[in-house]
Design a protein around this nucleic acid. Structure first.
Lengths: 230, 230
DNA sequence: TAGATTGTTAATCGATTAACAATC
DNA sequence: TAGATTGTTAATCGATTAACAATC
């Protein structure tokens, strides 16, 4: 009994099956989209799972499964209509739908993200940034105002901000997250490397560069090891 | 037969069990380390898997499994010695070992990464950057020289660069990757959003912000949907 | 001692892979 | 028609979860 209770208590919010699609599948979808757009631009109209798999180094059965899971339909012998497939992906990934975001922490990383216009392709619209450092405030970066942190609440309610992008130093991350949540933000894209404690109904997506680097390091160390053994 | 051949051909290089540790486990390890260092700094000497699990919203059995998989040993009733545990993690993640890296593409993102000193904690040493834009070259960013791209080969051989960090625009990513590989780099940390085609013995780690954002978007859309249903 | 906690072995669950029928 | 390709159902594989014995 205690086992089970403990399990429930510590259950991670991170739901595995998002919109009925396995998380690994979801993570591959943007890759398909990116690839398909490129293919379409170079004049391709139809494409088979086999071709996609070959080009992206994925097993073609998996590609087919992934595409089937978001409702894409192809024709035997022909493959998928690339235009329809792109539309299916964009719709599923909700890139059509504009989502407003505020960025907290206008340091180097924050300003870099502010300057990047590519997010629009993913339906993400960073409307403004806030920072504790008043020296940074008042200016505009890439047409987006950097505001004083005490304007966060107004900003969020007036502009119906759904997403907070967290680019503050680690030591301020939890505090900043708490503020965002108090302001009614539904989701946090966390670029700090600390684990955030948030209520169950708030979504946290970690952009975990340390984790990514750890995988790289470990694989590299293993490779060099193998090499020196030979 | 054809099935199997095809499988082998399209097999992704990305090995799942790195150093005998499942990939999901490996991805959690940096989180443990980060947390434990913080705990140690606030005076904790021993810690149990239960406590770690509670604080990081993980099931405590999983924490124990993860720690066991890298050879950490604890004492019943007491838990793990935090100092030893940190050492075990750092050693496993190869953070002690300095790895030289060169950054290709000194645009906004590239310069941001150059300016970030935190990588040293992970054993990553960015020694220099290169760029095609000669206006950017010659200067130093965070004490790291930005060089002309034709100096890449010399740089790599002279300084025994193992890792290439790719922060060029998508359209130049494959070409830049090819150059890095020709220069003998063993691993590429890819910040572009294109799939790189590389030889089997080159490690690619994708820092896939688009994928991360896709997960966020989809979870958010789902949440808002649920909400509007009520 | 008693009970919290580790470590290990078994059961479950989910994703990938395989096999095969349907079809343009 | 023949064969490439899709879509579906079953088998395999691996990670998580559960159960329990060992122990400080």
């Amino acid at each position: 009994m205690n086992e089970k209770l403990n399990k429930i208590i510590s259950e991670e919010f991170e739901s595995e099956n998002i919109s009925g699609v396995p998380k690994p599948t979801l993570l591959r979808l943007p890759g398909y989209l990116q690839y398909l757009v490129e293919k379409k631009n170079s004049g391709t109209n139809q494409i088979s799972a086999t071709t996609i798999g070959n080009d992206l180094n994925l097993y073609y059965v998996q590609v087919r499964k992934d595409l089937a899971s978001i409702g894409a339909v192809g024709k035997p012998k022909i493959g998928y209509d690339i235009k329809i497939l792109i539309h299916t992906l964009v719709t599923f990934l909700d890139y059509h739908n504009k989502k407003s975001a505020v960025l907290v922490g206008a340091g180097k990383l924050g300003r870099t993200l502010l300057s990047y216009d590519g997010f629009a392709n993913y339906g993400l619209d960073i409307v403004a940034a806030v920072d504790v450092n008043s020296d940074l405030c008042g200016c505009k970066i890439n047409d987006k105002p950097v505001l004083r942190i005490d304007e966060l609440a107004n900003l969020c309610t007036n502009l119906k901000i759904e997403i907070g992008i967290l680019t503050v130093p680690d030591k301020n991350a939890q505090e900043a997250a708490d503020m965002l949540i108090k302001c009614g933000v539904h989701a946090i894209w966390n670029f700090s490397s600390v684990h955030l404690n948030v209520p169950d109904d708030v979504i946290v997506q970690n952009e975990n560069m340390a984790a990514s680097l750890a995988v790289l390091s470990t694989r590299l160390a293993e490779k060099m090891n193998r090499k020196s053994e030979i």
